[in-house]
Design a binder for these strands. Sequence first.
DNA 1: GTCTATATAGCGATAGAC
DNA 2: GTCTATCGCTATATAGAC
Lengths: 213, 213
Amino acid sequence: MTTTTPHTRDRLLDSAERLFAENGVNATSLRHITNDAEANLASVNYHFGSKEELFRQVFARRIGPINEERLRLLDTCEAQGRPSLECVLEAFLAPTLRLRSDPEQGGEYFMCLMGRLFSEPTEWKTMLMEEFSEIFQRFGTALQMALPEHAPADLTWHLFFTIGAMAHLMTAGDLLKTFTQDRCDPADVEGTLRRLVDFSAAGFRGASRGESP
Amino acid sequence: MTTTTPHTRDRLLDSAERLFAENGVNATSLRHITNDAEANLASVNYHFGSKEELFRQVFARRIGPINEERLRLLDTCEAQGRPSLECVLEAFLAPTLRLRSDPEQGGEYFMCLMGRLFSEPTEWKTMLMEEFSEIFQRFGTALQMALPEHAPADLTWHLFFTIGAMAHLMTAGDLLKTFTQDRCDPADVEGTLRRLVDFSAAGFRGASRGESP
DNA sequence: GTCTATATAGCGATAGAC
DNA sequence: GTCTATCGCTATATAGAC
């Protein structure tokens, strides 16, 4: 299969992904997108029907493969008996943090966009949660296997804190780099991943209250 | 001093704060705000000159007292020699998390609004950072006193992760409650605070690499 | 200080020619 | 599938009466 110039539909998705990430969904007009994609204003409605449907498809084409990768990595953790906490956390965190160095999958643009959905007030947050529910189910079980004596509620709280740290890296990592004058740089993806896995694992292990749910 | 009906200017600030938090800054029009405040559309421009200046003042009237409270609590930690890690973390986290039960200071509306600024793409993020730079300076020093053998870069990374978890609580705490069918409820402010302090403290202590910066 | 009315611009969406 | 032209609406901001 030879590579040709992407069709209008794909150029629209790429431009929308980048502009939504850089400026926000509401702040990005269809005119910005079609100008950037060198397409006609009417092409968005022809290909997607509405701005909302365009956004849904920007999101949908990336999130599936990311969550499949999460489950694949989790399967690897569980292949040899009880999974280690670090392995489970890495399986959860790596597929999104590694987006930063994977332009083929939307790179930092999609990463930033996804991170911001957690704090959006609108219906977009619901979209994210629908895609996440199976993931939470599976990782909740895996965490319980890795830390069998911890209370389920503790695991939920700690996973929530971990997701917060992950989302902050996804949306505000550039701020950390600027603020520390490059001494802390999230562009070192594997180093950042290990730091977050180690921090969270210590938090999970050290902060449990051991109470029943 | 007796309490009277708030003046238009204050009603505008209150309505803007709530609507900005609930629906986002860009998505909230001056018409929404003036309708909610039972004021005239032109009153925003009379009192503030522009929507941007209105937002700046919504933010400015709350952030000062919050950061003063942070420094006051930090002074208490440091009053008797080397501060404990937990005390420093609580001094940083408590003033924002406690907003949830303090309607006098904007309550969950302002809390949610502030949390979202971390992931906003625009100039608003810069505003937040300007207010934060003294805070980071002071808490960075305090953390180094609490954990003298830890590398400064480690402390920076770990504070960044902690801020991410805090921001996630501020913006998506309702999601945790819904998703767990009320088993985890951020409305229990002091319980939530202790959980986050314990989790972060364990992360700080357990995840340090002990390298030089 | 508060009102009505409006200026000016940008928005999403669509009709209809090609 | 892609284009031009435009509809109908909403936005921020302002002018000027009261």
